[in-house]
Amino acid sequence: MIDLIAQTGLNALYAAAYLSLVAVGLVLIFGVMGIVNFAHGELFMLGAYVVVALYAGGQVPYLAVVAIGLAFVGVVGLLMEWTMFRPLRDNPLGGLVASIGFLMILQALVSMGFGVRMAHVPPFTQDVIAFSDRVRLPVQRLIVIGAAVVLLGALWLFLKRTRFGWALRASAQDREAAALQGISINQTARIAMFIGAALAGVAGALTAPLISVNPHMGHSVIVAAFIVIIVGGVGSLEGAVIAAVAYAFIHTIVTTFWDGVIADIVGLSLMLLVLIVKPTGLFGTADRA
């Protein structure tokens, strides 16, 4: 029994790691640009397909592929910012709808390029750290956890210690006031979009050998990420990480002891509950002043 709990904990930690990367990017984009990026799950998917394209052939070393995935998806994020989110800056619903359109385009392009069926990704390493007979942590999962800690730590330092990070936090709090302070909204939006997308991409690239890679894999990731950002309090990076960990544990435990669909239902119900208890209107017209 203790073995089972320990193993479930390790699994949850791994799920929390990549989920935080996705959710934190989503929150960053929402905070700075005020746009809910529905295509975020597809950015994750794109990161995984970078691995399919470059690593499955075996020519490029894995870590280099992960770095390429990070950069490539980040650039796709910049493209989204430039073509859609900038022109739609004062239209949050428009930005959201456009991101749904982008989601479909990415899915369709990947389906056309790689086929709709599951893509095979060879494992990067077969090594396993065995704590006991039944408690085992594959090294690949450890890499995901480690990378998430390093990347989120780096992001935290970037936000707290650098001028760009300060500008980002300022515009997340109040875009107009930030603009008055001489912060370029275009620049902060670009940085937020690049980082947000790159985090989703690197999460996809890191987990590609561990999960089933297909053009529709973004769906479950974005649903989980929405649950996390709602439960964690929209706009809070720390809240997103904490909620990601909590959600990953609950989901993993329910999946282990019941099944995955029930776990999804539990997660969604949790989010609905939070929304019922603390409903807030972002686009609402007449809020209490």
Partner: peptide, 10 residues
Amino acid sequence: RMKGFYFLIG
């Protein structure tokens, strides 16, 4: 009880 984006997600 929700509005806008929250209604959408809800």
